[in-house]
Design a protein around this nucleic acid. Structure first.
Length: 763
RNA sequence: UGGGGAGUCGUCUAACGGCAGGACUUCGGCCUUUGAAGCCGACUAUCCAGGUUCGAAUCCUGGCUCCCCAGCCA
């Protein structure tokens, strides 16, 4: 939107964005949002997006990370063409700009210690103090800088600082550091440098050098924008220059996102590495089976705004399921086996059934063969000796459909000496003539089953907001049970699932054949995401209710209207009374005088008293049109709004003009809506109200018969809306008002128009 | 308590001063050889208080809450 405006105004010829990762860690889903945004806007406006490594800190950056980052972005299927850049390739130019600043007297070499610099920076409420080296002569600065570059000093001996303002309320502007000495080699630049540029100096220059137009970054850099602008305004870079715009970074429930915390999860052994499938890293998600398309869709869906926000993980999971639904073929496997014996089936007979790989609503072809015989495995959860209410699966006497196969009826169970059910016995319905069963369960042939290692991944943190507990560190919410490993019994075809491919195990979830663990003919499956499970929710709820029942309460009736009643009291006792006008500070003498002299409201008086410019304007206007009430209203509400972003003095609007306008309205020559148009024009061009009214033909001139006709016309043009309005959707009156006022150019009396509309649409 | 940002359904996110919309979640219903998917429906929101206006999420005033800034990290 903002970009559209820039283009429309001809600020830039095209759009150039960039994704600027620092090669010091792995990319996570939060970076994905930035990637999708940057590449997305470039594509939308037919521009381009650069990939630029912001490698300005040699101490933490490594080629390994660079490689991983490139792999991850490619995996997301974004393409930067030949536009791969490195901040380190610009080091020489940065240095040139630094020299330029020094020569202009806008930067100096500071030889204070790190600690001294920190102490003299001041605090958020106190100004900082000047460095004793601040006025070092240009020549000396140049020499020192040259020697810093040459490696003549130890780390920390000197820094280059911008000379801006040690008293700036923006801490970032208190002579920010531009260069620091680091006598270490850079992973790309080698040992060519002994000084390295700071982010605030380098980033804006990188953008300018690459002719970036829109530099999108996260909210925490808002304070840095002033430096960004300062540097680019003070060095010789090509124009038009880039501008920085901030957006909210992504947070997700049930996880953490900062590099530091992710690293501590790895180091603490809570996960197996950066690519552990529970990690929110792209590498982890890839290994878990999340797809690039799902991640992109998710990033687009959550949108971009400036408000800090935490997106529910369910939303990501939805995107993943939605994508995989049409991409993952269906197969069967039993995670926790229970033997099922078909009493009515011959011992040695095997029937190979054709089973579709896709459900009805996925328009894809393909089947596989599934063997059926006397002994099968079914899921333990699919049998209950004493069925819960609503249980639609196997229990003594029940009938279920075996997926892709026969209907069976449970005839009994076998138990071990401890009373555990070890085998369920059924008879099958050979011709399918019986009535339809309520449920369908999955199964595999015991004889043909293949063992498949399966990892069930859950959320890393049990708490939705692990970082939002002041009294508890996020580590305490790590879910130790977020990984469950087991060996499943799979149908034969499952052995052929290839490394890196997706499959849905029916009724259980989407799984991914882990590329690092899968062997030929023996996939290791990671559960990407479980299927939505309504029954699990229902039974969990039932369990809760049951737990609440023992003390004799009636089933759910008691649980339903929970103890939410105190709400009414709470709101009532919330003492909002202290706020209102009565609760405000009393008017000072000046405001009091204003109020009494002109009969203003306290609010109006308070504003005029606190804004000398508006007060003078108000008083000057009274000289022309002595109607304090209406003039005050215009000044307080409308003129004040105009001064939001511009000084009153800069506005071409005069007190006399405003007074004239107020008079025209008071005397009924111009209707209120039209008067606002006039004011807008006045603030743009500085014409007198009368000139504008004449030029635009805004004098009130809509007589009642004409207005009536207009109203009828507008209603006739929107029959559907009129109907809804008559049926009670009163908000639509506003819709019609808008149309009528538009038709009259704001010249009609709004109250008359509304009356007419209400009469016609009232029924 | 300096400065910079931000407050719209439970959660994200829309709405030239003119119908508070969409998505996720939740809850009903339909359908179903996946308690999935799909389809239909429902619930629920403009931080608060004043003001301007025919009409305010939007403009004005005041207040409240949350986030960011005192790295030689980015």
């Amino acid at each position: 939107m903002m970009i559209r405006k820039d283009l429309r105004e001809g600020k830039y010829e095209g759009v150039v964005t960039r994704f600027p990762p620092e090669p010091n860690g792995y990319l996570h889903i939060g970076h994905a949002k930035s990637i999708v945004l940057n590449f997305g806007v470039a594509a939308e406006f037919d521009g381009r997006c650069h990939l630029r490594f912001d490698d300005t800190n040699p101490e933490t950056e490594e080629e390994e990370y660079e490689k991983a980052i490139i792999r991850d972005i490619r995996w997301l299927e974004f393409d930067w063409g030949e536009h791969l850049y490195y901040a380190s390739d610009y080091f020489e130019r940065f240095y040139g700009y630094a020299v330029e600043l020094v020569e202009k007297g806008l930067a100096y070499v500071d030889s204070q210690s790190e600690e001294e610099i920190r102490e003299t920076r001041g605090t958020v409420t106190e100004a900082g103090r000047h460095s004793p080296y601040r006025e070092r002569p240009v020549k000396e600065n140049l020499e020192l800088l040259e020697r810093m570059r040459a490696g003549e000093f130890p780390n920390g001996a000197h820094v280059l600082r911008a000379k801006i303002d040690m008293a700036s309320p923006n801490m970032k502007m208190r002579d920010p550091l531009l260069y620091r000495i680091r006598n270490v080699p850079h992973y790309r630049a080698g040992d060519a440098w002994h000084i390295y540029p700071m982010y605030d100096f380098a980033h804006c220059l990188e953008d300018a050098i690459e002719r970036i137009t829109h530099s999108l970054c996260t909210l925490e850099f808002e304070n840095n924008r002033d430096i960004y602008d300062w540097v680019l305004e003070n060095v010789s870079i090509p124009r038009p220059r880039p501008f920085q715009t901030e957006f909210a970074r992504l947070s997700l429930t049930h996880t953490v996102m900062s590099k530091r915390k992710l690293l501590s999860l790895v180091k603490g052994g809570f996960v197996s590495g950066w690519d552990d499938p529970r990690m929110p890293t792209l590498a982890g998600m890839r290994r878990r089976g999340y797809t690039p398309a799902a991640i992109r869709k998710f990033c687009e869906d959550v949108g971009v705004a400036k408000a800090n926000a935490t997106v529910e993980i369910e939303r990501l999971e939805h995107a993943v399921r939605d994508d995989l639904n049409t991409k993952a073929p269906r197969m069967m496997a039993v995670l926790r086996p229970l033997k099922l014996v078909i009493e009515s089936w011959p011992v040695d007979e095997v029937e190979w059934l054709d089973a579709s790989l896709w459900p009805r609503d996925v328009p894809k072809e393909g089947t596989r063969r599934v063997p059926f015989c006397k002994e099968l495995y079914i899921e333990r959860d699919d049998f209950m000796e004493e069925p819960a209410r609503g249980f639609r699966r196997l229990y003594p006497g029940s009938r279920v459909r075996l997926r892709h196969s026969y209907i069976v009826e449970c005839t009994g169970v076998e138990k071990d000496e401890d009373g555990n059910v070890v085998e369920v016995r059924v008879r099958h319905d050979a011709d399918g003539s019986g009535k339809k069963p309520k449920g369908t369960i999955h199964w595999v042939s015991a004889r043909h089953a293949v063992d498949v290692p399966v990892r069930l991944y859950g959320r890393l943190f049990s708490e939705p907001h692990p970082e939002s507990h002041p009294d508890k560190p996020y580590e305490e919410f790590i879910d130790k049970c977020s990984l469950e490993e087991l060996t499943a019994k799979g149908e034969p075809e499952l052995a052929n699932v290839e490394s890196g491919s997706h499959v849905q195990l029916e009724r259980q979830g989407y799984f991914f054949a882990d590329p690092t663990l899968t062997e030929e003919g023996r996939p290791a499956l990671n559960r990407t995401v479980p299927l939505r499970d309504t029954w699990a929710k229902v039974s969990a709820r039932a369990g809760l209710e049951k737990a609440a029942v023992p003390d004799g309460g009636r089933k759910k009736a008691a649980a339903e209207p929970d103890e939410g009643r105190p709400v009414g009291e709470a709101t009532a006792s919330a003492e909002p009374a202290s706020q209102g006008a009565a609760g405000r500070a009393p008017l000072d003498a000046e405001a009091l005088g204003l109020r009494d002299a002109h009969g203003l409201s306290s609010e109006q008086a308070r504003l005029l008293a606190s804004r000398p410019d508006l007060r003078r304007f108000f008083e000057a206007a009274l000289q022309v049109h002595d109607a304090p009430a209406s003039v005050a209203r215009w000044v307080v509400n409308e003129v004040a709004a105009l001064t939001k972003h511009r000084e009153l003095e800069e506005l071409p609007i005069t007190a006399g003009g405003l007074a004239e306008l107020a008079r025209l309205v008071d005397e009924g020559e111009v209707a209120a809506p039209a008067a606002k148009t006039v004011l807008d024009e006045m603030s743009r061009l500085g014409e007198s109200p009368r000139e504008i009214v004449e030029r635009m033909g805004l004098a009130e001139s809509v007589d009642s018969t004409l207005l009536e006709a207009l109203v009828r016309e507008v209603i006739a043009a929107h029959p559907a809306e009129a109907d809804r309005c008559r049926q009670g959707k009163k908000g639509l009156i506003g819709f019609f008002m808008g149309k009528v006022m538009e038709a009259t150019g704001g010249k009609a009396s709004p109250s008359d128009a509304r009356k007419l509309l209400e009469r016609h649409l009232g029924g």
